[in-house]
């Protein structure tokens, strides 16, 4: 991806990342009506559309902030594809079918398709990770929260009243436990690409 040219619409991504209200407003004014129409025409309503749009923007935000998302295609196409994908998945979920990811034929040379695919896999992984994290025991949850918030393991150990070595070992084992939960979930195997 490195050599591809960044599209000028990167400004929308940067604007989201900076929580710039003008840019967010512009996204709603310029790109959201098309999504709302699509969802309404495909057995949805305005409320559903509102949720899909919001979730999609949060996913883009997360990918931008965690993975330095670089837009190589127009925002319009990318955003629409993402919302569409999300909506189709919602429909499938509500009709109790398995959600399969790879059923659409992707033309790999299409930047928008490819990027939207990447982002939606990213988003589903995030959701899966969050779901599995919630299943961890409280001791692990607290330790991991403290570890990533405080950063210095010495301080973490101190705040939890344990030794540095123990806190360190616990951290590895808690993430290890999480790794096992994630790898054991059926969703994970569908997401692996």
């Amino acid at each position: 991806m490195g050599e591809k040219k960044i599209h000028e619409d990167q400004k929308y991504i940067d604007g989201l990342l900076k929580n710039n209200s003008f840019i967010i407003q512009a996204i709603y004014d310029n790109f959201v009506p098309k999504v709302v129409n699509y969802i309404k025409q495909n057995s949805g309503d305005a409320d559903k559309a509102q949720d899909v749009v919001q979730d999609t923007l949060i996913t883009i935000y997360n990918q931008a902030s965690q993975k330095k998302l670089k837009l190589t295609c127009p925002f319009d196409a990318y955003f629409f594809l993402l919302c569409k994908r999300k909506w189709l998945n919602e429909l499938k979920k509500s009709s109790n079918k398995e959600v399969t990811i790879n059923e659409e034929v992707l033309s790999k040379d299409d930047d928008a398709q490819e990027l939207a695919f990447e982002t939606s896999v990213f988003g589903e992984k995030q959701a899966l990770f969050a779901e599995m994290f919630a299943q961890l025991g409280d001791a692990c949850k607290d330790l991991l929260k403290a570890t990533f918030k405080i950063k210095s393991m010495e301080e973490v150990a101190k705040s939890l009243g344990v030794t540095y070595a123990y806190a360190r070992k616990k951290k590895s084992l808690c993430i290890g436990k999480l790794t096992e939960l994630v790898q054991g979930s059926p969703k994970f195997n569908q997401l692996k690409n």
Binding site: K125, F129, A130, F133, K145, F148, I175, T179
Partner: peptide
């Protein structure tokens, strides 16, 4: 790889809790 991804996820989740 999963361990690494989870580390990155947790780091982002908790470090940027307020901005998010």
């Amino acid at each position: 790889n999963t361990y690494k991804e989870l580390s990155a996820f947790l780091q982002h989740e908790f470090e940027n809790e307020e901005t998010s």
